[in-house]
């Protein structure tokens, strides 16, 4: 159980991170990450939908005929997104207006359908919820990191408009990283999202490469002999 839990967390947060490795859900990822507040808003909604859809799919996995499973998944996800959309209208109406079409578009986020098909329909409720949470948090971390990068580069601030999510007291959270910054419009516009995303993926690959290299050097035999036996029977 312990091993399984750790495996799920490692998969979701790093090894097959939906944003950095599977490259799923790129459309909302690139479109709304122009500030931390927007990114965090979409991240929370997506994670909630992902956890709930994994839970429901796992609960119904023995009742649903294999031939109609995909329409069923889509119905479940669509219902959950509708719930999330109505909740956002009720709780954070301004943010709902800013995120606009990207809230209903969560339905088409392949990360969610992908987890339902690849994991939740084959595993128990607890494990499926954990998987949804790990994948959702992995996706959210990338969203927020990209949002922070683009907000600092684009406007020189961090955590603007957080009151849209956390109420009036969060207005004070706004940090001005660079004083008298004249703004770098490029980072706010879509091309900046693509370049930022490319840099994040490159960073993950560099870290993986470094780890693999150090692993290799650890695995090398301690003897200095480089001769390899190629004939005979190795005993």
């Amino acid at each position: 159980m312990q091993v399984e839990t750790r495996h799920i967390l490692h998969q979701g947060l790093w090894q097959s991170n939906p944003a950095l490795v599977q490259l799923l859900g790129l459309c909302p990822l690139l479109a709304v990450t122009n500030s931390v507040a927007n990114a965090l808003g979409l991240a929370i909604v997506t994670t909630l939908v992902l956890v709930a859809s994994n839970a429901l799919v796992s609960l119904t996995r023995n009742k649903v005929n294999k031939d109609v499973r995909l329409p069923t998944f889509v119905m479940i996800i669509a219902a959950l997104v509708t719930v999330a959309e109505l909740l956002m209208q009720a709780l954070t109406y301004e943010l709902y207006q800013i995120l606009g079409i990207f809230i209903p578009l969560i339905v088409t986020n392949c990360a969610i359908l992908g987890r339902a098909e690849a994991y939740a329909c084959k595993n128990s409720l607890a494990l499926s919820i954990l998987d949804g949470l790990a994948m959702g948090v992995g996706f959210s971390l990338v969203l927020v990191l990209l949002g922070a990068m683009r907000e600092v580069l684009g406007q020189g601030t961090l955590f603007t408009d957080m009151h849209l999510l956390f109420g009036e007291s969060a207005r004070l959270w706004e940090l001005t990283i660079i004083d008298d910054y004249r703004g770098f419009l490029f980072a706010i516009l879509p091309p900046g999202a693509f370049i930022g995303m490319g840099l994040l993926i490159a960073m993950k690959n560099v870290i993986d490469h470094r780890q693999a290299m150090s692993q290799l050097s650890l695995d090398e035999p301690s003897s200095k002999s480089r001769r390899v036996r190629v004939t005979g029977i190795i005993t």
Partner: peptide
């Protein structure tokens, strides 16, 4: 082009 988009 990047500067033209960023600092019109």
């Amino acid at each position: 082009a990047i500067c033209l988009i960023a600092f019109p």
